[in-house]
Computed example of a mutant assay.
Amino acid sequence: MEASEIRALFAVASRPEVVSLAGGMPNLAALPLGALSEQVARLVAQDGLTALQYASAHGLPPLRERICDVMALEGIAARPEDVVVTVGSQMGIDLLTRLLCDPGDVVLAEGPSYVGALGSFAAYQAQVVHVPMDAHGLVPDELRVALVRARTAGQRVKLLYTIPNFHNPAGVTLAAGRRAEILEICRAHDVLVVEDNPYGLLGFDGAAPAALRSTDPDNVVYLGSFSKTFASGLRVGWVLAPDEVRDRLVLAMESATLCPPTLNQMIVERYLAGHDWQGQIAVFRDLYRERRDVMLDALERFLPPGCTWTVPDGGFYVWVTVPEGVDTRAMLPRAVAARVAYASGSGFYADKSGGRQMRLSYCYPTPERIHEGVRRLAGVLEAELEPGFSTGS
């Protein structure tokens, strides 16, 4: 087990003088905190004996019903009994890896991929093989190549881990025309698909993309979370799994945590029952769209020639590629000294490649801070690109 490069940034990035473009923290200032505080007070006063007690590792039935309503927006027809509530979707990733992977098994994942998932795969000694992406998401032909190569080498591929919508960290979305093809490839090779979709409802242009699970319920395990669409601190997520996976997942939940926090589950369920949660998600979409636009404008205005970046149509992140000769990991201390922080690309690859990439997050800072942060970052990059400057100095 190794410390996450991204988590190690938090202490530095939280300093007020540093503009943090590193962390993917949702902007909770947009929540109706007054109404929520009244709701929580009523909940404890009226149902405290239940809310503060142990409950099933499966998750509270009323919440599982509400979760099915949420997933219906992405085309998923689900039964409450197939939903397992977890302590954030990260717990779902960890427990699924524990259940499905033996040491040495191969997990396919986009390159780059979510750092939390990479940590779980490493902890259970699974071997991560990255599959390239482009501006339209995971490349099907590259997936075929990876599967054939693994089979030729005698390796056992257990699952494909994918973030199809508004990818973390790349910001891209899997093209509609590729989705059925990727599912067909995985079925043909007997590879389970784990679909991680915390950002799916945060698209900037209309309806949420249809989930992979909506097309292939028998071979896709779906991971969801309220961390990005409600409150990250409550740590409420879920797994929607086929029967044989679900039953084992409940047993794994019991051994890992006995039961998830009942109070937090009840807060989320009451929020979904008593608030315009879809309207609140629309507020978040507008807020993040504005910040995305500010970041893209600032990148265009300030970054030196040779830099490129993705253009996300939802979610939290822009993925930037810098010119040859710049190592974003080595540059990070100098960026922090210039009072700006980002997430270097190497943290999003199992083999620590990605030295020319960085993830910039626009979800939390104000538009003014985003503009200033990109300006500071551009100054650091320009210094790195000066003739005679060494990134090892």
Rank of each mutant, 00 (worst) to 15 (best):
S4H: 08
E5S: 10
E5P: 14
A11I: 15
A13P: 12
R15T: 13
E17H: 12
M25V: 14
P26K: 15
Q39R: 15
L43G: 04
L43E: 00
G59Q: 05
P61Y: 13
P62T: 13
L63K: 02
R64S: 09
G75K: 04
I76K: 05
I76Y: 02
E81P: 07
V87K: 08
M91W: 09
I93K: 15
D94L: 12
L95Q: 06
P103H: 04
L108K: 05
P112Y: 06
G116W: 12
G119L: 11
G119Y: 04
Y124M: 13
Y124F: 14
V128G: 01
V128S: 00
H130F: 00
D134V: 07
A135D: 10
H136K: 14
G137C: 13
G137I: 15
D141P: 01
V145H: 12
R149Q: 12
R149V: 10
R149G: 00
A150M: 07
A153V: 05
R156K: 10
V157W: 00
K158Q: 14
F166P: 02
L183C: 04
I185P: 04
C186Y: 03
R187N: 06
H189G: 03
V191Y: 11
V193A: 04
V194A: 08
E195M: 08
E195A: 05
N197L: 10
N197F: 08
P198Y: 03
P198G: 03
G203V: 11
F204D: 00
D205T: 15
A207F: 04
A207P: 12
A207K: 14
P209S: 00
A210H: 06
A210K: 14
A211T: 12
D216T: 04
N219M: 12
Y222Q: 10
F226T: 14
S227E: 09
T229D: 01
G237Q: 07
W238M: 04
W238E: 02
A241D: 10
D243G: 03
R246P: 15
R246V: 14
D247G: 07
R248L: 08
E254G: 01
L258G: 10
P260C: 11
P260H: 15
P261G: 06
M266T: 06
E269T: 15
L272E: 00
A273Q: 14
Q278N: 11
I281C: 06
R285W: 09
L287K: 02
R292E: 00
D293M: 01
F302I: 03
C307Y: 00
W309G: 07
G314H: 10
W319Q: 08
V320L: 09
E324L: 11
M331C: 05
L332Q: 09
P333F: 03
A335K: 06
A338V: 10
K352W: 09
S353A: 11
G355A: 06
R359H: 08
P367A: 02
R369A: 13
I370F: 03
I370Q: 02
E372I: 13
E372H: 07
L377K: 01
A378C: 02
L381V: 12
E382S: 11
E382G: 03
L385M: 14
E386N: 01
P387W: 01
G388W: 01
T391V: 10
T391Y: 01
